[in-house]
Every structure is written in structure tokens, then in C-alpha cells.
Design a protein around this nucleic acid. Sequence first.
DNA 1: AACACAATAGGACGGTCGTCCTATTTTATA
DNA 2: TATAAAATAGGACGACCGTCCTATTGTGTT
Lengths: 198, 198
Amino acid sequence: MNVNTREKIIAVASDLFYEQGFEATSFLHVASRLGISKGNLYHHFKSKDALLNAVVGFRLSETANMLQHWEGASTGPQERIKHYINIVIQNWDKIRVFGCPVGTLSNELVKRDPENKDAQKVFALFRVWLRQQFTEIGESDKADEYAMRVLSWSQGVAVLGSAFGDFIYVKREVTAMCIWIDELHRSDTANSANERNN
Amino acid sequence: MNVNTREKIIAVASDLFYEQGFEATSFLHVASRLGISKGNLYHHFKSKDALLNAVVGFRLSETANMLQHWEGASTGPQERIKHYINIVIQNWDKIRVFGCPVGTLSNELVKRDPENKDAQKVFALFRVWLRQQFTEIGESDKADEYAMRVLSWSQGVAVLGSAFGDFIYVKREVTAMCIWIDELHRSDTANSANERNN
DNA sequence: AACACAATAGGACGGTCGTCCTATTTTATA
DNA sequence: TATAAAATAGGACGACCGTCCTATTGTGTT
């Protein structure tokens, strides 16, 4: 296998699945954007489902790399959570037009097969990582609940922001989310101070 | 035009667009579920886009009827907002499998044409109605912000709940949303009491 | 240099799609 | 009842789909 070509195919397919949706993207779309033939593409992936699996794996490793990068560069768990929250602003140009890449693909995959676990994999990766950040803040009891709230809040903002094309609204909600994170931190340090005084 | 047949077509198309997505639903699917011919369907709708427009209009009027029904039966704006919040529980069996009908169609339409306003129409209807409820509560300054927050929170819960197939999580978030509404109400009546005492 | 195999191109295949066309049946009106 | 219009059925059409097959080119190993 020519790994280089294979990886190019996966990257282009990931983009097209995001921009057009999985169903609406054909082998010919992927091949022609790469300047290769449909037969060549089929040599690397024996079915469209195989290509989808590769794209999901590609997105998982991309996401894992991003999370790992945040681990190294950030000063604390609050800052790391804010990195996630700010994605919707960083990628606004694409989210406005195509929605959230994770949520829209999840929607499509769940409709294809409600039992398929691929739909939740990237969400699950973010969930575990966010849960860890909230645990480090000191919210271990509610870490998973808060992780899910960050996920759903961001997801909702992406959907509504895209539907209305309203960047002002998106920025306002991102600010509100960051304030919520800061308040969690403050009440936590306050509790810690109280505990220390007892 | 046979209005009866036309309305049956729209209702079935709305269901199929929800269950399979717009792109994945063909004229043959709609016709065969109704037991009519493809040619007959094309007699009533001269293109797939015309059918889509009719479905969007149908959903708008259905939504308007639901909102109007809540106006008559509920005791106050808080109860009416909670009616909206509880939709995700009422319709969980379908939302788990197919996601939110408004959000998933919006995603698809925005990808087809980012400038198309149909994608936001049902959201906009809920938005105006929710804004009115928050205004009646006494939160006129933040009525639109709160309306959008209810929309996005619910939307996020629908997406994540569907992705993970987790009804426990959905119920927990619905409870949290209702508590938030109650707290808004309490702080409002508290403010009113303070104002009366001054 | 000879050879095995990966990589690539190009097209055939059966199927489905949206659209359109033409008959036939039903319905409403004069 | 006669007739025009609406409703319905059924299929033709070109296009595109995922899949598969074959032939050709490139590449690395013996």
C-alpha cells in the first residue's frame, strides 16, 4: 500500500464528508479532487464503509493529537477546557457553512444505523478528556455531568449559530461558557479555603 | 388539486425526511409508502425542492399549532417554556434514533445552500415564541438571549443524547433546564418584591 | 534483465435517482 | 349525458451511484 496516497485519500474524504455529508459524497468526488481515478481509490478502499471507517479513525487521531497539544501548552485545566470551548470561534468560517463536523456526521451515522458506535467515538474522546479536566479542577463528583454539559452547550451553539449565521450570538455564548468555567473554579477554591479553615 | 392527497404526501415526506434525511429520501420512497405511483406524486409536486418547501411549511404550521395549544392550556410562561424543554423526553423514542427533526434538517439544508433561510425557519418560530415567554416572566432585557439558550441547550442535549443513546443523561439535563427556569422566576419575583418594598 | 506485485486508469455492470412524457381513469361541470 | 380537467399509473430518459473487472504502468526484489 502506498501510505502517502492512502492518507491523502482519507484527508480529502474527511473534508468532503464534512462539507457535503457522507451520503452526498461519491467515490468520484473524492477521486477527482485528488486527481486520481475511481479505480485507484477502490484499490485502496474496497468499499465506502471502509473509507468511512478510515475517516473516523483519522478524525480520532487528529482529535487526540489536538488534546495532547493542549496538555503541553496550557497552564491549567480551566485553560484547557476553554481551548475546547473556543473551537467554535476558531473554526467559525467552516462551522457557519457546514455545521459542527462531529455533530453532523454523528447525525448521519445514527440515522444509517442507530446501534452503530462510530457516531459517538469522537464525542466520547472529548468527553473523557473534559471529564479529566473537571476532575483536576476538583469537581470529580460532577466531572462527567460537566463534561457532557460543555459538549452539549457547544454543540447547541454550533447548530444554532450555523442555522442563523449569527457570529455575535456565538461569541456571546462562548463568553458565557468561559464565565461558567471561571465560576466553577472560584467556588472550588473558595470551598478549598473553607475546608482549610475547618 | 386533490388537497387530501397532497396533504398526505407532505406528511409522509416530512416523516421520511426526518427518518432518512432529505437527500436519502426518493420520490419512490414517498410514493410507495403511500401506495401511489411516482408519476402521481410528480403531478402534485413538480420537483423535489417543491416538496421540500411544502414540508417546511407543513412543519411550520404544525409547530405554530403546538405553540398555540400550549398558550391555551398552560398556567404561565414558565410552564409553557417547560413544555418546550420536555419535548426531548416526550419524543425520545424517535430522537434517539433520528435526532432532532429541526436540527438535522437544518444541518442538511445549510450544507446544500448556506444562504438558504429555510433552515432556520422552525428555529425562528420557537425563538420568537420563547422570547415572548421570557418577556412575560419579566426578563425582557435578556429574553432573546434566554430564548436562544433554551434552543441551544435542548439542541445539544438532543444531539448528545442521540449519539450516546443515553436517556438518563437526557432526563438529568431536562431537570437542570427546568430548575434554571424556576430560578429565573424566583429571582424575578424576589426583585419584584424588593421593588414593591422600596 | 526478469519477474512479481503494487499502483493506477478506465470502463462495464446493474441499480436508483430526479425528471419528464404519455396514456388511462376519475371527477366535476355544463 | 357529454366534455373538459384533474388525478393517477407506468414507464422512458440520461445521469450518477457503488462495485467490480481488466489492462497498463510503475517499482522493487532476485
